[in-house]
């Protein structure tokens, strides 16, 4: 198994690590059984994601996929961010090894959950 340069880069220097204490939306995915857990925090202003942070427990691919997802989502409108797909994340990372593809599924799910959480709170 070999990781792409992008994966290694995002694993070594993950972007947007941390939490947002007064987050407008939080998304949580994964479980301990599979070994990967992700948390995404978003700050929303004028329907745009103005700040985003993540916390991930998992392998290098899980950390890189979380980091890439936050990069892709930052500054986007909620509707556009909601459309970020597993393949967007996977392709931006220069493709994950096949057995690590689920990490891109997880991180695409995490941002959707955070947006759902924000929208539920707004109602």
């Amino acid at each position: 198994m070999k990781y792409s340069k992008e994966v290694i880069n995002h694993f070594e220097n993950p972007r947007n690590v941390g939490e947002i204490k007064d987050a407008d939306g939080i998304g949580e995915v994964g479980n301990l059984r599979c070994g990967d857990m992700m948390q995404v925090f978003i700050k929303v202003k004028d329907d745009k994601i103005v700040d985003i942070k993540f916390k991930t427990l998992g392998c290098a691919a899980a950390i890189a996929a979380s980091s890439m997802m936050t990069e892709l989502a930052k500054g986007k409108t909620l509707d556009d961010a909601y459309k970020i797909s597993r393949d967007d994340i996977n392709n931006s990372l220069g493709k994950l090894p096949a057995q690590k593809y689920h990490c891109s599924i997880l991180s695409a799910g995490a941002i959707k959950k955070a947006i759902d959480d924000y929208r539920t709170k707004q109602k």
Binding site: P14, V17, E28, M37, M38, Q39, K55, T56, L57, I63
Partner: peptide, 8 residues
């Protein structure tokens, strides 16, 4: 470092 990144 890894624990700081972990949600747990």
């Amino acid at each position: 470092r890894l624990r700081t990144m972990s949600p747990l």
